[in-house]
């Protein structure tokens, strides 16, 4: 097992049971991060963890449309030495167009804005097993040519988890490897339940969905990392989606990102995300030409300040490229998040 930034990887992965077998010079810190462990927290491995967290969760959170089942499944994550963390984030999304059924770009004619505050928490349950919950609100402003519509409400609740088979950051030339899962519950207002003609009051997908996937994360020394992953999502059939019975096809999402860590407190990453979904069955018949796909570019900056705080900013834009986009709204989004570690191992 290699060490990265001076952190012995095996120790930080030990959970409550294994802790008892740690040699006496190691000790437990609950609810705070000791100032004396600053060198550990400033290690390259932890920066990699934070920026990968942003890649995995922040990016997806902002660009998923309130409706239409584009929830993300990679979810949050904890860095190796963290026991629990709370994240507050807000995102702003502007749709700038859409791809039609032929894959042709159609420019937006009106200005809309979607804002989302989100509160999420994650805890390490046992060794490499982590689980979390995320709650969000959704506010939409639809600037129609003749009328402005505003809607607000709670969004869909998401539970997520991951199990790390190979500790994140990897070991030598072997990347970290985790299984991921997320469950979205339709607590928001479904597209077919909204009353605003412009859909401003739609805040959720209306369907429960489950996503499972894998994530690879690899630190190359202290100065560079890459991450990649994929998920497959399955949605519950909609018995009555506004007069239609709809059975969604599985949705595939893949991403890859990488970047440097600068002066140990700032990490940057850029990456590509792609998603694809087959045509659904509408009233038992396959909807012709209704498969959907889109690709996005994103950038992430993660800055550590203090002993337990981390600021993450992401920017992303769907690509209006006819080979990758079809039947989907295209957006540009910015997310800012503040993350606080509320429990850690040394």
């Amino acid at each position: 097992m290699c060490t990265a930034g001076g952190v012995p990887s095996p120790r930080v992965y030990m959970g409550a049971h294994a802790l008892q077998s740690i040699p006496s010079h190691a000790h437990r810190v609950t609810g705070m991060v000791r100032a004396g462990s600053a060198s550990v927290w400033r290690s390259g491995l932890l920066h990699v963890s934070w920026v990968v967290l942003a890649v995995c969760s922040g990016v997806g959170t902002a660009r998923a449309a309130a409706c239409c089942g584009t929830g993300y499944g990679v979810g949050g994550r904890l860095a190796p030495a963290e026991r629990a963390a709370v994240t507050m984030q807000a995102s702003g999304t502007v749709p700038y167009g859409s791809m039609n059924a032929d894959g042709r770009f159609v420019r937006a004619r009106s200005v809309s804005l979607e804002g989302r505050p989100e509160l999420s928490g994650m805890v390490r349950l046992w060794r490499g097993l982590q689980a979390g919950l995320a709650f969000r609100g959704v506010t939409q402003v639809r600037g129609l040519p003749r009328k402005r519509a505003v809607g607000t409400g709670i969004g869909d609740v998401r539970a997520f988890g991951r199990y790390e088979l190979v500790p994140s950051g990897g070991s030598g030339w072997v990347p970290g490897f985790a299984l991921t899962a997320s469950l979205t519950l339709p607590t928001g207002r479904a597209p077919w339940a909204g009353r605003d003609p412009a859909g401003a009051d739609v805040t959720g997908t209306g369907l429960a969905s489950l996503r499972v996937g894998v994530a690879l994360e690899h630190a190359l020394g202290e100065d560079f990392f890459w991450a990649a992953g994929g998920t497959v999502g399955l949605s519950q059939p909609a018995a009555n989606a506004g007069g239609f019975r709809v059975e969604h096809a599985p949705q595939l999402q893949v991403f890859a990102a990488g970047g440097p860590t600068l002066r140990r407190t700032l990490s940057l990453a850029a990456g590509l995300h792609y998603q694809r979904e087959g045509a659904p069955l509408i009233n038992g018949r396959l909807a012709p030409g209704a498969d959907r796909s889109k690709a996005a570019l994103f950038g992430v900056a993660s800055w550590e300040f203090g002993e337990r705080w981390n600021l993450v900013v992401t920017a992303q834009a769907d690509l209006p490229y006819d080979r990758t986009g079809r039947n989907d709204e295209l957006t540009a989004a910015v997310t800012g998040g503040l993350r606080c570690i509320v429990g850690a191992w040394e």
Partner: peptide
Amino acid sequence: DALMPAHGHGSGT
């Protein structure tokens, strides 16, 4: 009937 076939939804109104 209005439907977004690729997204599997109509509208509520």
